[in-house]
Every structure is written in C-alpha cells, then in structure tokens.
C-alpha cells in the first residue's frame, strides 16, 4: 500500500515528464479534460487538469470530472512513476478508467509517450 504523499509525488513526476515533452503538449492541445485520480484503499484524491495542452495537478477531488481513474494506491503510484504501464491493470480490472473509449485510449497513449521504452 502506498501513502497519499507517494501518489502525489508520482503525479508530480508524471506532470514533469509531460510538461517537458513539447510534442505531447502539441498532441493534446485540443483535449481539455478534468481527471479524477482516486485510490480505493486509502483516502486519496487528486485532480489532473489538461487545458490547451498544459497539465496541472491539484490536491483533492474535482466536483464533476470528465474521466475517473480509480485503483489501489500502489498501482496508482507505480503507474504514474512509470514503473508499470496502465494497460495491464486496466485489462485485469485492477485499474478502472471511467470515461469514453477515446479518453481511455488517449490517457494510455499519454502515459506510454512519457514512460514508454
């Protein structure tokens, strides 16, 4: 089990990886989304905000997210640190991504572009 602070740190690493990737920002310039990242085994919620290609992170849960990412704290921290890709936990049900299929594919893609080999 990871702590809330570890998830926060992993999200900061994810944000750093995203924001230094100019191409990724260009790719997502059209994709404005509010994303909830929530652990289901500890009290932990974060908000990812994508606006005009820029990614910001806030503590706490948003009121009406476009996409919800829900998993156990360990999986969330591993995933946002890039130790694992989202695909496997998504496929085995450990990770739930609630949104349109297009949004799920886009989030997977962003993660792979940051952390992919």
């Amino acid at each position: 089990m990871a702590e809330h602070s570890e998830i926060t740190a992993s999200l900061r690493a994810f944000q750093e990886g995203y924001n230094k990737n100019k191409r990724l920002k260009k790719m997502n310039a059209d994709w404005d989304r509010v994303v909830l990242v929530e652990a289901n085994d500890i009290p932990s919620g974060h908000t990812l905000i994508l606006r005009k290609g820029e990614l910001t992170i806030q503590e706490g849960s948003p009121e009406s997210p476009d996409v919800k990412i829900i998993s156990d704290s360990e999986t969330l921290a591993d995933m946002f640190y890039g130790d694992i890709t989202p695909t496997r936990p998504y496929l085995n049900g450990t990770l739930k991504v609630l949104g349109t299929e297009d949004d799920v594919v886009r989030l997977d893609f962003i993660s792979l572009m940051i952390w992919g080999e």
Binding site: M27, D30, T85, R106, D108, F109, L112, M113, G116, E117
Partner: peptide, 25 residues
Amino acid sequence: IPYPISTLEELEEIAHKTLPDMCQL
C-alpha cells in the same frame, strides 16, 4: 489525436513507444 506524422522515422519511434501496449487493448 490530431497529430499528423510526416516521416517514417517518427512513425517508427512513436510505434516503438506505444504499440507494445496498445496492441494488448
């Protein structure tokens, strides 16, 4: 994703990063 790829090299690079996982979806 509205990003046109204009070279085979960039296509290969993006494929290398993403396809191993995307192919499992």
